[in-house]
Design a protein around this nucleic acid. Structure first.
Length: 594
RNA sequence: GGUUCCGUAGUUCAAUUGGAUAGAAUGACAGAUUCCGGUUCUGUUGGUUGGGGGUUCGAGUCCCCCCGGAAUCACCA
């Protein structure tokens, strides 16, 4: 449609003004609702060719197009905007073309041949996942879906911070207090089980400090004298030295954590192609640092610690290895990056990590470049904002975190309550019902988080998210379920037959819906280019709302005219397909009924 | 203080990436509906896009200067 108009404009300018124009000067867009018409041409860029007023130019070109293009019914001019009304039969053609292209949907060729890595999730093995991780996981997974849809070859990776003093703390607490208890003994999910001992350590440590300070020590002295802290350091030392007993316990406790994480990941519907462990990559990182030191890119201070000076890039000095030779966060990330490049030879590598680490990733990329790795240019920190709650900020130190599993559970409970109240599922088995509740609960959670621009800090309100009305996941799911219901009923009606162009006259709601449907592809491409799933979310909401308006105003199954009924059912079916596909890019499942 | 990001209806978010009169949802208000209320439906209200300059046919969007908020600037991860 746009193509032919574009062609018309080039011809018009050629014939009317005897001038050749650049295709880039042609701006065609969908007409806004408030105005009459379907397609709008912005004529301002054409003025240099016409040398006339915007109104006159639009008038000239409009007349020309109406004359040569039979698909165009009429036009109107508002200021410098030429609004073109497409004939209804042309809209029907657009729909038929869209629909026939649907099964083999490919959105864009731009990603073709691109190998793209996405790192997301990145948990620590000393505590369960929380609300912040949920945003991370959902964004990472959705980016994977969107980029894949645009032709990228995408690999999902995860880096597990399974090493360090924090792990040793839970290990020590377990040795001291657990008396051999395991997750299966206690009936606690593995990651929560280990998290429990981490908290026990913190509490015991606090008590110890309080006792010591009450004897007249300062905080610093107390921290140095602390037996618990000394015990953790001792464990870390043993771990690094490869002490068998320590390593065995470490492996055992980590396996409990992973078992727990896997359940949470499964609930969220996310997965990974390859998981990296910091305990493996930190050694490679250390070698890289030492290599850089030999090349003179880094330098050693008197105490033996290794640094890089980035002050010429406004980034100050950064520590790479401690005085005792042990690795820091940056060390292992350098190792992980190099290992990943060796594994995948990626073109792009997205790190889905919260915006509190912007500085870290700036430094990481710069260091890799200084080391001479060309591929560092493909590294990109996908930085997202924090999730706040109505009660205020989340602070893990004060224990004010929303646990991921708890949150999912409350969402499930709420979904069940609300569905039971509506009572539309009474005839289904318990298993089928549970499956639907699950889809609603997760759909509500995912949609609420993904509809927000990732960069922005956001406010998560659990009650609002699961509303069946408004801009929510359940509302879109409800629209989809409604469409499916119509289609099930339609099978018992006589609506077979092809739709041919020219068969029927479309009404406004129908052509509005088609207009929106044809934008889908563009939205997906844009979401991939700007790495922004929220575009897809908000688009889908508009589509669902548009369908409901159409559904509200016109009869589908009760329609007498066979051709019209056939068309409307086909339109509903296609809308359902797009909604499902669109929400699928957000990792949200659509229930067949709800 | 340096760096990065964010400021849009009372609130939570949009705005086809530089297009027309900045839109939804929710809240509030009015009316309808009925088992009081919630629910549901209809309508109304709600904005100097933090402020000020600039760029151009045209700015919420791009540039500069202020104001406000967040993150970060560790031998934590």
């Amino acid at each position: 449609m746009e193509r032919t108009i574009e062609r018309n404009i080039i011809d018009a300018v050629k014939n009317l003004y005897d001038s050749d124009i650049d295709v880039a000067d042609i701006q065609i867009q969908a007409t806004r609702r408030e105005f009459e018409g379907d397609i709008t041409v912005v004529v301002f860029p054409l003025l240099k060719h016409s040398r006339k007023s915007p109104e006159q130019t639009a008038e000239d070109i409009g007349n020309y197009i109406v004359e040569v293009n039979p698909g165009v019914r009429f036009f109107n001019v508002v200021k410098g905007f030429l609004n073109i009304e497409i004939s209804n039969s042309a809209w029907l053609d657009v729909f038929l073309k869209l629909r026939s292209a649907a099964p083999a949907h490919s959105f864009s060729e731009k990603g073709k041949g691109q190998t793209t890595l996405i790192e997301y999730s990145s948990p620590n093995t000393n505590k369960p996942l929380h609300l912040g991780h949920i945003r991370n996981n959902l964004l990472g997974y959705s980016l994977f879906k969107i980029l894949t849809a645009c032709g990228h070859r995408v690999y999902k990776t995860n880096i597990v911070n399974d090493r360090g003093i924090h792990i040793c703390k839970s290990m020590l607490a377990w040795k001291l207090f657990a008396q051999g208890e395991t997750p299966s003994d206690s009936g606690i999910k593995g990651d929560h089980f280990v998290g429990k001992y981490y908290i026990e350590f913190e509490n015991a440590y606090k008590n110890e400090i309080r006792e010591l300070t009450s004897k007249g020590m300062t905080e610093e002295e107390a921290a140095e004298r602390s037996k618990l802290m000394a015990g953790s350091r001792e464990l870390l030392r043993k771990w690094e030295a490869g002490d068998k007993e320590t390593l065995d316990l470490w492996k055992r406790m980590n396996s409990w954590v992973y078992e727990g994480f896997n359940k949470t990941y499964e609930m969220l519907g996310v997965d990974f192609d390859k998981i990296y462990y910091e305990s493996n990559t930190y050694k490679l990182g250390r070698n890289i640092v030492i290599e850089g030191l030999e090349k003179g890119i880094f330098y050693r201070k008197d105490d033996g610690s290794v640094w890089v000076n980035l002050s010429s890039d406004k980034l100050d000095e950064k520590l790479l290895l401690r005085a005792d030779g042990t690795a820091v966060y940056m060390t292992q990330d350098l190792g992980t990056a190099v290992e990943r490049y060796n594994d995948y030879k990626f073109d792009r590598h997205y790190y889905v990590v919260g915006n509190e680490q912007n500085y870290h990733f700036q430094v990481l990329k710069l260091i890799l470049k200084k080391l001479g790795y060309e591929w560092a240019n493909g590294i990109h920190h996908f930085s997202y904002g924090m999730v706040n709650l109505p009660e205020g900020k989340m602070k893990s130190r004060e224990g004010k975190v929303v646990d991921a599993d708890d949150l999912i559970d409350t969402m499930l409970v709420t979904a069940r309550e609300m569905s039971e109240e509506l009572g539309k599922l009474d005839e289904y088995s318990a298993g089928e019902k549970e499956n639907i509740y699950y889809k609603i609960a997760l759909g509500a959670l995912k949609y609420f988080i993904l509809k927000v621009d990732p960069r922005k800090n956001m406010l998560f309100n659990p009650r609002e998210s699961i509303d069946f009305n408004g801009n929510t996941g359940p509302f879109i799911q409800y629209t989809y379920a409604r469409i499916r219901s119509v289609l099930r009923k339609a099978e018992t009606y006589d609506y077979s037959g092809d739709i041919k162009s020219g068969d029927i006259e479309l009404n406004d709601k129908e052509s509005d819906l088609i207009k929106l449907l044809r934008r889908f592809e563009g939205v997906v491409v844009e979401a991939a280019e700007t790495l922004n799933p929220s575009l897809i979310a908000n688009y889908t909401y508009n589509l669902a709302k548009e369908f409901n308006q159409f559904y509200h105003d016109y009869s589908i199954l009760g329609e007498k005219e066979t051709a019209v009924r056939t068309f409307r059912i086909a339109l509903s079916e296609y809308t359902g397909q797009i909604i499902q596909e669109s929400m699928g890019l957000l990792g949200i499942d659509m229930p067949e009924r709800m």
